[in-house]
C-alpha cells in the first residue's frame, strides 16, 4: 500500500517551493514504514496533513491514495478513508469540547458501526477497559470522565492520540502531536503509537517543528 505524490504543488505554497522538497516531484509513502517531517512554520506541514485527510483539495498535480486518485473520491469514500484507512491527529486536535474524554474516544466505535453496516465491528475498536489501560499508560486516566474543555492542551493531545489509535487504519498521520508534552511523556506516547501501528502494519507520518523531537528509526522527509 502506498500514498503517491505526483508533482503536487499546494496553491498556498506556489511561490515558495524549493528543489529538495517533496513538492513538485514524485514521492511515495509506504505503509508499515515511519516518516518524520521536520520543518519550521510555513513550509506546508499542516497542508500536507490536510491533503492526506482530504480537508483540502487546492493543489496542482496528482495525489494517489492507495491506488485511487484523490479527486475521484466521493464524499462517502472520504468518510471511509478517514474512518477505516487513514487516522489523523490534527494540530488543533478537533475534539468535542462538551463531551467527556471517554465519549470522544468511544465516538470512533459509533462511526465504525456505521461503516461496517451493523456487521461485526473492527477488532481495532478497543473496549473501554483497553482504552482506560492506554489512558493510564499515558497518564490521563483520571481525566477520562471530565469534559474535554476542562483539560490542559497537553492532556487533550494525549486524548486526541488515543482517539486516533482507537480504530482500524493503514496510515496514522500526526500533526505536531507532542508539541505540549515533555520528552518523557512524548516518548511514552510514541511507544504506544508505534506498538498499535505495528499491530495494524500501518505507516506512521509525524510532523514536528524542529529536530528536538527527532525520532529514532524514522525516515526524514524534507518539505
Amino acid at each position: 500500500m502506498t500514498i503517491d505524490f505526483q508533482k503536487i504543488i499546494p496553491n498556498p505554497l506556489k511561490e515558495f517551493i524549493t528543489h529538495d522538497s517533496i513538492w513538485n516531484t514524485d514521492f511515495s509513502f509506504k505503509s508499515g514504514e515511519m516518516y518524520q517531517i521536520i520543518a519550521p512554520s510555513g513550509k506546508g506541514k499542516s497542508t500536507l496533513v490536510g491533503l492526506l485527510a482530504g480537508t483540502r483539495g487546492d493543489f496542482l498535480g496528482r495525489l494517489i491514495l492507495e491506488g485511487q486518485l484523490s479527486t475521484e473520491f466521493s464524499p462517502m469514500k472520504w468518510s471511509q478513508w478517514r474512518a477505516l484507512t487513514c487516522s489523523v491527529v490534527f494540530q488543533d486536535l478537533q475534539l468535542f469540547q462538551n463531551l467527556t474524554a471517554l465519549q470522544n474516544l468511544t465516538l470512533t466505535s459509533e462511526i465504525n458501526q456505521i461503516h461496517s453496516k451493523n456487521q461485526t465491528p473492527s477488532t481495532h475498536i478497543q473496549s473501554v477497559e483497553t482504552l482506560t489501560e492506554w489512558a493510564t499508560f499515558l497518564g490521563v486516566e483520571a481525566k477520562l470522565n471530565q469534559p474535554v474543555a476542562l483539560l490542559s492542551f497537553g492532556q487533550m493531545q494525549r486524548i486526541a492520540i488515543l482517539r486516533a489509535l482507537n480504530r482500524p487504519f493503514n496510515w496514522i498521520v500526526l500533526d505536531e502531536p507532542f508539541s505540549h508534552l515533555d520528552q518523557t511523556n512524548a516518548n511514552i506516547a510514541l511507544n504506544l503509537i508505534q506498538k498499535v501501528a505495528t499491530q495494524q502494519n500501518a505507516g506512521i507520518i509525524i510532523t514536528a517543528l524542529d529536530d528536538r523531537y527527532a525520532l529514532p528509526g524514522f525516515q526524514n522527509v524534507t518539505i
Binding site: M76, W81, Q94, R167
Partner: peptide, 15 residues
Amino acid sequence: YETETLLRQGYPHSN
C-alpha cells in the same frame, strides 16, 4: 465546527 469534526473522524455526510 462540530459537523466538520464529525466529518473528519469519518462520520458520513449522509448520516
